[in-house]
Each structure stands twice: as C-alpha cells, then as structure tokens.
Design a protein around this nucleic acid. Structure first.
Lengths: 192, 192
DNA sequence: CTTGGTTGTCTAGCGGTGCTAGAATCGAAT
DNA sequence: ATTCGATTCTAGCACCGCTAGACAACCAAG
C-alpha cells in the first residue's frame, strides 16, 4: 500500500500549495485577482484540479481563513505571554491583533469579511477559530470587570478591535492616529 | 430651452430610479444579485443606459451609500433628540446605529463594506458622510471624558459599533446577546 | 512484457459577469 | 417633410466560477 500512501502524500502537498498560492496571490493583488484560472496557472495544473481538492472558490478562502486563525492565535499568545500584568497584557493583545490585521489584510479578509463557508459562534465551528477566540478570552477574562461575563466582554472587545482594523484599512479612519485609538480603547474597556 | 429642461428633469428622475432599484434589489436578494443586466431589466432600459448615468457598478453602490449616510444621520439625530441626559442619548445613539445596520444591511454594506469609490476621512469626503460622522460627534462629544479629543473618541466609539454591527450580521457573534453587548459598550466607553 | 482497467488530468464549453463599439432609432429644428 | 444630433439598443468583448467528457498515465494481473 506504499504507492497509495505516496499518492496521498503528494495530494496533501498539492493542497497546501493551492492554499499557500491563493494566500500569496490575495496578499499581492487582492482577493479579486484570485481567480480559479490564475490560481490554476500558478500551481501549474488545470482548473478542474482545484475542484478535486475543494468544492469551490469559497472553500479555498475558508482554508486560508483557518490557516490565518491559527496564526493569529499564536501571535496573540506570543504577545501576551511576553507582557507583565493584566494591563500590559491587554495592550499587547490589542496591538498584536491590529498588527496582524494590518500586515495580513487578505488573510484577515478571508477570516472576517469574505464568505469562506465557515461556521462561527456555533458548536461545529472549526477548531482554529475557537482557539483564536480562546486566545482573546484568556487575556481579557482578567479585565472583564466584576459581574461581567468574560465571554460577553471578549465579544465586545473583539468587535471593537475588528471595527478599528477594518475601518482603518478601508480608509474610513484617518491614518496615523491608529495607536492613540487603540490606547483609548484599552483604557476604557479594560477594568484594571 | 424648455425642452432641454424637461429632458434634464427626466434624466434626474431616471437616475433616482436606478439608485432606488439597485437598493431595493440589494436589500431583497443581496448585492451579488445586483447585476447590470438585472438592474437594467428592472428599470426597463438597456444596460448601456446605466453607464450614461454612472461610470460603473461601483458608482451605483456609492450612490446608494450616500443615500444611506443621509438617512443614518437623520435616524441618529432623531433618536438622540428624543432622549434626556448624556447617558440616555448615548444609549439611544448606539441603539439607533445598530438598528439601522440591522434593518438596512445592503445599504450598510454599500457604506462600509463594499467599494463605492467614495473618499473617507478626507477633505473631499462627500457631505452626507461628513454629516453622518457629525451626527455621532454631537452626542459623543459630551461623554468623551476629560483630555480626550472628541473626534478621536468618536472614531473609537464608531469603530466599536461598526464591529458589533458587522460581526453580528455575519454570524460571527452569537445572536440574542446583541442588546447586552451594546449596553456593556456604552457603559465602558462613555464617561458619564 | 503486454494488456486491461482504473485513476487522474486536461480540453473545451456552459451560462454568467462588467462593460462598450457601433448600429439603429427617435425627436427637435429647419 | 427632411435633416441631423442626441439617445438608446443590439451585439459582442474578455473574463468569471464551474463541469462534462475526452484523454493520458499508471498499476495489477496474466
């Protein structure tokens, strides 16, 4: 059965290649430029090959989103673990989140703006997404304040960060004041 | 020159018809369903007529966005003027904003999610958009807190509302707790 | 080593998109 | 009534996501 195993391995490699290429193309030229034709050309296979791995373009976006969620969780934990005290941790968390959104706009879009066919806030939400939320929760729970459900507080904090990230990147907010906005948000929302 | 005047009037009417139809179609079936062909069919003209009014689809989205911004400003002012005291005003503002986003999802998308080719946070930002922000600022300035620029505070508050609105509607946050999230946000951000 | 059949991949094409060139038609002014 | 400019339409471009069916590569059995 070694032949079959090799084939499966090769298939898995190709699937990773598809996702990585889609992500790369999206970061370089935006998701609009990620067409099945271009993607197929870049991986040096024909279009139908994509459909033997994914049901369609939306599933490819979903795959990029999952990859991104895992990375975001790692980035958040790395940032918070390097900070001392609740206050510093929350600041680091916010900064890391906004940095991630700024430096990985296409991945961020795949996660939260585009339809990747993923379930959220649901029992069958994919693990990386739940874990990303968990990473937020870990740090935010200690500054939720008395009588406030940590989960609810995390949702609000997350929404605020998300709003800052998207409005900033879409040019809806003046550039340059991003840092001050983040500071203000942390100051007000977190109960130290 | 009366003939020419009549023609200009008819053109203006038709332009309004295009925008209203686009909006209606978007609210009924989503922006994906708003294709130039369907839109042309609904207004009972051929496709190229659309391009004698707008440079392209994005400009039509922009027109819907401007209409929505004006309506949002009206809704926000109506809500706040009916409330007594800063605290009640901010609560009413938040509720009105989130209600607007919930009940006019397509218009809200046109304003903040889609590319309508509009300038934001800029000197040549269209008046309705500036006015929408002004409507927020009027109420929020009185709860910005000492030493905090009202403009900056408004940006942060707005971003938080925007995050709640989009994440909720995209199914990223559990339904049902929307009201509690809004309350928590107001409690924390506003300095009463 | 050849054959047969399965598995994998590709070519070609469907119906759709935004947008536009050039033909056709309308209507106002002579 | 005829001309001529403005307006509208038909038809088509290049591209999109997606898929049926032809084709090629490969492995197992004889």
């Amino acid at each position: 059965m070694s032949v079959q195993e090799r084939k499966e391995r090769e298939r898995a490699v190709r699937e990773l290649l598809i996702v990585a290429t889609a992500r790369e193309l999206a970061e370089q030229q935006g998701w609009d430029a990620v067409t099945t034709r271009r993607l197929a050309e870049r991986i040096e296979y024909s279009q139908p090959v994509l459909y033997s791995h994914f049901r369609g373009k939306r599933e490819i976006i979903g795959a990029v989103a999952l990859e991104g969620a895992a990375e975001l969780a790692v980035a958040l934990r790395a940032a918070t673990s390097a900070a001392d005290g609740p206050r510093a941790r929350v600041t680091a968390l916010a900064r890391a989140y906004l940095d991630f959104a700024e430096h990985n706009p296409a991945v961020y879009d795949a996660m939260f703006q585009l339809d990747g066919g993923l379930a959220f806030a649901d029992e069958d939400t994919p693990k990386p997404l739940k874990d990303g939320f968990a990473a937020l929760l870990e740090t935010l729970a200690e500054v939720a304040g008395d009588g406030v459900e940590p989960g609810l507080f995390t949702e609000v904090f997350w929404a605020a960060l998300h709003g800052l990230a998207t409005l900033t990147r879409a040019g809806r907010l003046p550039v340059g004041d991003a840092e001050r906005r983040a500071e203000l948000l942390v100051d007000r929302l977190a109960v130290i």
